[in-house]
Design a protein around this nucleic acid. Sequence first.
RNA 1: GGGGCAGUAGGGUAGCCUGGUCCAUCCUAGAGCGUUUGGGACGCUUUGACGGCGGUUCGAAUCCGCCCUGCCCCA
Length: 477
Amino acid sequence: MEEETGALPAKNDFSSWFNEVLWRAEVMDVRYPVKGLYVWFPHGFAIRKHVYERLREIMDRDHQETLFPLLIPEHEFMKEAEHIKGFEEEVYWVTHGGKNQLDVPLALRPTSETAIYPMYALWVRSHADLPLKMYQVVNTFRYETKHTRPLIRLREITSFKEAHTVHATWEEAESQVRAAIEWYIEFYTGLCVPVIVSRRPDWDKFPGADYTVAVDTIMPDGRALQIGTVHHLGDHFSQTFGITYEDDKGVQRYAQQTCYGISERCIAALISLHGDDHGLVLPSSVAPVQVVIVPILIGKRRAEVNTAAEMMEQVLRAAGIRVKRDIREIRPGAKYYHWEMRGVPIRLEVGPRDIDAGVVSAVTRTGDRSTIPRGDLVPGVQALLGQVTASIKKRATDEIRSRITVAGNVDDVVLAVQTGIAVVPWCGERRCAELLEEKSGGSILGMYVRSELVEGIDGVCPVCGQKGCCTLIGRTF
RNA sequence: GGGGCAGUAGGGUAGCCUGGUCCAUCCUAGAGCGUUUGGGACGCUUUGACGGCGGUUCGAAUCCGCCCUGCCCCA
């Protein structure tokens, strides 16, 4: 199905590397004949499945999963003015059923506020119904005019996890925003993806929100990738859609809302941050295959080796480890390259030499070779899985940290943006931002930065000299 | 949004300017047979394409038009 041999483009040629690794590691097939739509290969889909299982585990602690329709009637979609302005140009419309023109055009959801909130208006009656917290994982459609790119800029976002909550007070909604940020950080920590949290400037907030907090990471080419957003919606939508509740004194009040989302960009980040010149590198938590067993079949001892490999497979599977025994009739070296490309954390080799020594040879995807006594297979493998994950995490954190630079003046900003993100004490004035953006080629990502990777900084705006607050500037995807 | 460049078998390319054959090609992939197997094996046999639609022509991968798709650069 895929091109097996030959080297990947080097990862420092990130754009080529990314396109090529999606194909060679069987993540996405980009050959679907509609712009901006791509096909998940089974291996990519299996990665997606494990990643979203992690995400669901977290969401299920405080939300109920639900499912709303894909189609939104025009009159609902067109209710919230700012929201319309933000999405109008990107909406696909269904206008016909067969040959008949529809009385009411139907939008393919670009996001689901206008699908969900009319129902919330029916469901929320009293303060006893609050808080209401739901999420769904769905596809959404946006007619992107910029260059589309698999997993990153799509016309069909196939894996949009969106949560929508309703609260009695603005403060309660804000504490939900803070909780959501914590969950997103936890989620990305599980993927070994370091993130930076910041509050988007007003001109870049979600259309219809009071404010937007974004979760960004930095890709290998130094550009920032937004991989999560959390919005405090205030009562904008509840006023539009009539989401009211009766408080404990019998007064009707508008509800306060939040929404927050993560898309398959999380998988773009996972792949891009950890991958190397040999292909994907996956943390064991989301690796579809955590351990591959390659039997070394030579001459007369084939049966013996096969039996040993089968037993290893059984033992590991019984221990809950996702294991694959590769029994294809190809040379072992070809199998090594095959599974390295797909990011398998651990390869176990068993051949006559190992059997005689009572061990199994283990090689981690991060490059460590060792032997495990046959009797200690499960604990040995579990320890190695932990090692691989720790090593991936350290590598990614070091990499991201090296791309974040505290910049005290305009020249430093320009320099920092060439390789990553600048941290600047910006004053908050739009015209200072414009100057910084113009000179550096980057954009203001956000203020009130929060990240283990960024020291809080005090100082003055490098443009005007007024007191500034910790702000991120970088090129974006 | 503006501007380039490109699309030829599963993948990568030559051919296009200057239209012309029965077998384009190399690296691979698929099928078959055999020898192999501790880091991408080899031999032999074989399958398979000119992005789509329309036009010009006796004849189009090649020339013209429109569309679709991809990549790069600039806003």
